[in-house]
Design a protein around this nucleic acid. Structure first.
Lengths: 152, 152
DNA sequence: TGCCTCATGTGATATTGTAACTTCGTGCAT
DNA sequence: ATGCACGAAGTTACAATATCACATGAGGCA
């Protein structure tokens, strides 16, 4: 096998895993946070804070400010429930919170669909290259823009 | 040696190399473009379009709109005279236009100083991993946030 | 001269991101 | 019960980043 083994979550248990992860950290799992996570998880491509604010607003039937969404996204990112896609100024839900990786995003410039790889050998190589240059890596950003299989 | 060998430019000949690169492509090397390149090259860290607009405005003694700077930066990026640092929403001058690499940025979160590595083996690995996933890579983005040697 | 193209100017607007301060609810100590 | 502390969320304002549409101007060329 050699590759990392993730168990998969259906959308129900992903939600549960996210809640557990947060509560284990001593953070609360509020209605608002649940709503933001649910909205984020529904996107199959990176969603901006504003996309999410709009989705949650619609779902809740009242206006949710982007502001609040940012706060919650920051919490999610620092808790590994979500990741930020730097080259898209947007966020994706982490499909396996609990597993910690420097993940590699593949973002389709045509349809926007984004997948991600966990290749610790590659990301380790990047960290090593940085270290060799006297640089203390805290967060590698590895993203690939291009065309996905469906679009090529 | 094994590593790629770049000849270095002093700031005079870097300017020349940039001009040549652009004119060879059939593009004009205008006063404005020269001014933007010069301003960009002076920064030792990624500069936003607005930073550059301000620097050029000061140098020219008149207001340059960010707008115009974006146009020129887009041209520079597509001509390999400059690169965009995605995780900083900012740009850096390419110290060796003419050489084409998927470069790797090391961005210090403390002082902002940014260096870059050209490691074709690593970036090739990223491209290969994408290809293995059925993804046609056009532009790998490899950046490392962390602390530079001087700040650690 | 008149037309065409390209670079730039200008103003407006959209999108993304932060800051400061208020309100609300919950739990806890008095 | 009353008052306080604290975290979550609301609200407003604003800053930073990015794009769009259209006007102007200079240079080449029929």
């Amino acid at each position: 096998m050699g590759k990392h083994d993730h168990h998969l979550h259906d959308s129900e248990s992903l939600h549960d895993a996210a809640r557990n992860r947060l509560t284990d950290k001593g953070e609360q799992w509020t209605e608002m946070r649940a709503a933001v996570f649910k909205a984020l998880a529904k996107f199959d491509r990176p969603a901006s804070a504003y996309d999410i604010a709009e989705a949650v607003s619609k779902a809740e039937g009242r206006r949710i400010a982007a502001n609040s969404v940012y706060r919650i996204l920051d919490l999610f990112v620092s808790s590994n429930l979500a990741m930020r896609v730097e080259s898209a100024n947007a966020y994706v839900a982490n499909q396996h919170p609990g597993c910690l990786h420097d993940c590699i995003f593949l973002i389709c410039d045509n349809c926007g669909v984004t997948t991600h790889l966990d290749d610790d050998k590659l990301s380790g190589g990047v960290r090593q290259a940085a270290a060799d240059a006297g640089f203390e890596a805290s967060r590698p950003v590895i993203e690939v823009r291009g065309k996905c299989g469906d679009c090529s």
